[in-house]
């Protein structure tokens, strides 16, 4: 058994009845157990469902808000991904480091038995550093790392990312410098 007016319960609860219809329905529902039952159930379901705490991953929120900020301000935000020189540098540095290592290790003039062991060690370290850097760059460019605008209150996120990458660069630079110094016998 049901009530022919039951669909109106839904329209009533969603505020889609006009004031005259709503008044009439309010009278009806006081006397109708079916419509009242329907409304009670919906009230419970809505309260329960809307009380869920499931939210998407934090990186998604950051990415969406960053993108919204970037689109509306119409300006380049000071995120790593938006800086062309950084992109060039990011790919250029590991390549340059690899070339220098290859030169030092393979070129006859660079070969010195007394420093060979150290060279090999540095070469391995350099390889690991450049590999890590490339992996982080991959993450960065595939948007798994999200940087946010400096206008954003979460400014520290991109600074963290930047300092991390900056650390990698410094490490590579130091190793290259050590290699040169060692080769020169300093």
């Amino acid at each position: 058994m049901s009530c022919p007016e039951i669909k109106k319960t839904h329209l009533f609860l969603s505020g889609e009845l006009n004031s005259r219809q709503a008044k009439k329905f309010r009278k009806h529902v006081k006397a109708c157990p079916f419509c009242r039952d329907e409304a009670n159930f919906l009230k419970m379901a809505k309260k329960t469902i809307r009380n869920t705490a499931d939210i998407p991953d934090e990186t998604i929120r950051r990415h969406i808000l960053h993108e919204a900020g970037r689109r509306i301000t119409g300006q380049r935000t000071f995120g790593i991904q938006t800086l062309p020189w950084f992109r060039t540098l990011a790919w250029g540095m590991p390549a340059l480091a690899a070339m220098i290592v290859a030169f030092l290790v393979l070129h006859p003039a660079g070969y010195n038995p007394s420093v060979n062991e150290d060279l090999m060690e540095w070469r391995d370290e350099l390889f690991i550093e450049t590999y890590n850097l490339s992996a982080e760059m991959d993450d960065l460019f595939s948007n798994r790392w999200v940087t946010v605008s400096t206008q954003d209150e979460n400014e520290s996120f991109w600074l963290d990312d930047l300092s991390l990458l900056s650390g990698e660069f410094n490490s590579i630079r130091n190793q290259i410098q050590n290699l040169f110094e060692n080769m020169a016998g300093i």
Partner: peptide, 13 residues
């Protein structure tokens, strides 16, 4: 951009 943040927060869950 803060207006968008409010919209987002309202509808995230």
């Amino acid at each position: 951009p803060k207006a968008f943040r409010k919209l987002y927060q309202r509808y995230e869950r």
